[in-house]
Design a binder for these strands. Sequence first.
DNA 1: GCGCTCTACTAGCGCGCTCTAGTCGAGTAC
DNA 2: GTACTCGACTAGAGCGCGCTAGTAGAGCGC
Lengths: 341, 341
Amino acid sequence: METSGRQRPTMADVAEKAGVSRALVSIVFRDQPGASPQTRDRVLRVADEIGYRPDSAARLLARGRSRTLGVMFTVRQPFHADLVEGIYPEAERLGYDVLLSATAQGRGEDKAVEALLGHRCEAVILLGTDAQPVDIDALGHRTVAVSVGRRVPHARVDSVHTAEGKGVRQAMEHLVELGHRGIVHIDGGRGPGSVERRRAYRAAMRRHGLERELRVIPGEHTEQSGIDAGRSLLAERDHGRPLPTAVLAGNDRCAMGLLMTLAQAGVEVPRDLSVVGYDDSHLSHLMPIGLTTVRQDAVLMAECAVRFAVERLENAVSEPREAVLAPKLTVRGTSGPPPGG
Amino acid sequence: METSGRQRPTMADVAEKAGVSRALVSIVFRDQPGASPQTRDRVLRVADEIGYRPDSAARLLARGRSRTLGVMFTVRQPFHADLVEGIYPEAERLGYDVLLSATAQGRGEDKAVEALLGHRCEAVILLGTDAQPVDIDALGHRTVAVSVGRRVPHARVDSVHTAEGKGVRQAMEHLVELGHRGIVHIDGGRGPGSVERRRAYRAAMRRHGLERELRVIPGEHTEQSGIDAGRSLLAERDHGRPLPTAVLAGNDRCAMGLLMTLAQAGVEVPRDLSVVGYDDSHLSHLMPIGLTTVRQDAVLMAECAVRFAVERLENAVSEPREAVLAPKLTVRGTSGPPPGG
DNA sequence: GCGCTCTACTAGCGCGCTCTAGTCGAGTAC
DNA sequence: GTACTCGACTAGAGCGCGCTAGTAGAGCGC
């Protein structure tokens, strides 16, 4: 038994063993005309026998193009998982390879993106980037970039997102119709879509004549943020200020954290307080009573992002494009009439 | 403004602009002795100016080694997210690059692994693989492979997992001490660790003289599995068979699904029924009342896996190795005394 | 016979890098 | 002066492929 450093077979090995030229092997593996069926067969058989597998580094170097899409995402962001699942099949359908690079503790977006570019990805798909517009624009000049979830108005990147305003509006209508007036918004800080959601929340409150009840608690798109917001609401209650009757969370994760904190404090949802999330990541179904949330169609967004990237690569599209998908409120168990209502 | 197909600068461009040879640029970028500080500086400045960035495909092709670890994981498996977060820093510390490849709908483990090997990963780290031992062994012969979460006894791969038996035993002791007797296990099917957990469950039941109560509901490591199991338990209750007083779920996801179903049916946890999970993925903290679960230290497991891979690559370790980490029961809110107890 | 086309195949350059085996010049020893 | 060392740098082969330009041979019409 050899050591782990065994030589991996190359095209030349296959060619020799099959008694043909390297070029012919190349032709066979690229599935191009120029080889007889018999030869094709023999080459493939030999290749299989000796365990040959094309080296994508060399292949990539040789042809100018890598036909690879890089995806930057955040491990732990359940909605990103949904998106990644949608990206793979669409990329494969269009003949592209996918490389993932995650951001994590100690591995910022810049590092994740550099890794992708170093591997010669032709385009970078950013899932819910938190980067400065300036940096995103710079990236868009260096390569083809698509931002998913966050619109980047004046940058040279395509973007795919949902009509945040529309989604928030639906959620707010829902709550107001149920009779809520004291509706608080925990926002997503610099998270994707946050600005738009916050704005839409404010507008909705005003439209319903609730500007005096308007309140935005700063947060971000994490469970911790929901927990923190929950704690401060509870602390306020203990100091005499009543709880709001409904909370519009920045996203599902935030809603989850909030729900956890409320439950621990004995606040019953939706009897005492209604909670609405955003994303409809698969988290939402897992809540015991089901999270009322605004659904973003992850698969559709993913497909759209891939298509944007590929079209730009292949047709040299010039203008930045923007796909705005329609979100849809999904009512589940965390929203109901307000306590006194 | 050029089209997207702009030429990316190469070492030759840097060399020319800096007035040195390509080799010197290479030396500078590999941070190797053989260049004066002034030259080094100049080269780096020029490179930065024209936006040069080493092409890892070419680099990888040129030196024999890629210094890249491939990680196969399942998007949506929260515990994998925890592991991935641990893998990045340890790999970086040891000077290795990481490539992720996810399994997903329509993209099986074989496809995910092929992608990694095609990209010249020197080793493959399999997170919770579901593949046949035969296939894993074959992979181990083709490359360096490490299996995390699942032990693969007679295969040529290293493995990292926790002492499943020990974890289950702790969970069972906990439940029995609380007074439970009717303890059901929803198993993880072919999922990693399932066999061992099932066996340990059986052994514990027998040891406590509860073989008549012993019951394993077939499942897998998904929320759906917990939902299904919950539904059948509820259906049985409606036909007169009493609910068990405790359920040991195959993993946290399964526990979550179960909890959801129970809550919807008005079964209160832990008053009517106790639930224990397995993994302590970050899901566990998010449960409103906190999931009692068996903690596996993801970071430690990740580091261990990376080290195994790297050591095998660099020292040609011959014997398959196995790291067995100690799990630890983490009691939270989903376990309590049985109804009548 | 000739020229033509068409299929099946091959030679060999080049992708952007690494790395070995050098060269060159300044410094040191005697 | 010669003989050496040492640091700074370069020439050029080669990594495993893709691809262009080509050849050899069969088949066809005249």
